[in-house]
Nucleic acid binder design. Structure first.
Lengths: 223, 223
DNA sequence: GGTGGTAATTGAACGTGTTCAACTGGGCAG
DNA sequence: CTGCCCAGTTGAACACGTTCAATTACCACC
């Protein structure tokens, strides 16, 4: 990959990205060939590899770009809502709505769970995007008026990120009309979460909290 | 694929499977080529495709075979334990222990979440394996002395299957020594589940149950 | 013992993503 | 103006999974 910000080559990079997306949309990710894409971008076959590590990496680049375009919608959702439920819902629905036109395309990214693989959502290479998402959820949690159990609160943003990841996955393959099942899943689970947090103080639930806290500590490390 | 049970060709099929597993173990799934595998099985390159739809399908065949070898361990675990926690733990740990020698290999299966894809754990083609697993969990639930909320009980076996699937995924990429983190995850989450079920009767939790019940109904359908 | 037909096997050929040695072009130091 | 450097570009070549028309092996039936 080229270095910082030479707008000269950034333009060709963008041209390839655009040509690729066009081809992906027209013929699907798998059917689209790199030769087609290169031709559509008016370059030789191998040229794209100067700018992108692989065919899938193009999709990641699209994801990164979408992540930026998506920011204003998130800011608005955070500004408009005060309760934790509404804020989290706002973030997630904004993301889904933004991705809707290219929903099938994201399926190309779901193939990698291995944190070793560059394109995995858990990989070192995708840390920046991930951290940005987590930061949104941090803000969603911080300014909400709910008081959270101390041993769980620090992990909540990362948990919400994981939750959102799972929901996105469900959404990707949700074939119900208008993805209604995803909508139900989001709605009910959010409400369950808020109810759970509300009852955090009840003495009955103490053992559950302790278990959850211990679990999160060993998984995410102390903090 | 050939039809029912002509042991003649089943033998060559097994020979290919064995050669493939050997090659996979020696050089990893990705590095191993179909040409190597065919050569190791003393056949021409394309021959394997008479018995297996794809390279990945060989891994599925391995999975199916393992599923059978695994059965006695499950039966023993079910016979030996009476509590829900111990029974579920027994099933899952038996599976993990059985898969341990070929742990890296299963990573080849994780690439498909799309229920459309033949190798997806949610696909029509893998229904039989899935149903068998769910049936184990049904037995684990049925004979345990816990009484469950009526609106959730019918879905519990399928939920446990999903839970086990997620755990297996975590385990696959758990790089802690002896997969200790997976062990902690299994232990704590199981205990949390049992606690949750125990408190099912408490009136506070009624709203949570209702939400969960409604959610499961729209996701899995009435029943 | 032929004879037909199905099952099994062959290996070349296809299309793919990716690599790479060679080439091009433009800017800059002397 | 000349020579050099190197980011950018080229397209043939590679290795792979997979397909398929052609060939062989096997066996039931006359």
């Amino acid at each position: 990959m080229p270095q910082k910000a030479i707008p000269k080559s950034a333009e060709t990079r963008a041209r390839i990205l655009e040509a690729a997306l066009k081809t992906f949309r027209e013929r699907g990710f798998e059917q689209a060939t790199m030769r087609e894409i290169a031709a559509a971008a008016q370059m030789a076959t191998g040229a794209a590899y100067y700018y992108f590590d692989s065919k899938e990496a193009i999709v990641l680049a699209f994801y990164e770009r979408a992540q930026e375009e998506w920011r204003p919608a998130v800011e608005e959702a955070l500004a408009r809502n005060r309760t934790l439920e509404a804020r989290v819902r706002g973030i997630i629905t904004a993301k889904l709505e933004h991705f809707l036109p290219n929903r099938p395309l994201l399926g190309a990214l779901t193939g990698h769970i291995d944190p070793t693989h560059p394109l995995s959502p858990f990989s070192e290479q995708t840390r920046e995007i991930r951290d940005q998402d987590v930061a949104y959820f941090e803000r969603a949690v911080r300014d909400s008026q709910l008081r959270l159990p101390k041993n769980i609160a620090p992990y909540l943003p990362r948990l919400l990120w994981l939750y959102q990841m799972g929901l996105l996955l469900f959404w990707l393959y949700d074939r119900s009309r208008d993805q209604q099942r995803t909508a139900v899943l989001l709605d009910k689970t959010l409400k369950m979460m808020v109810l759970g947090v509300r009852m955090a103080g009840l003495p009955f639930l103490r053992p559950v909290h302790r278990l959850a806290g211990e679990l999160l500590e060993t998984l995410y490390g102390k903090a």
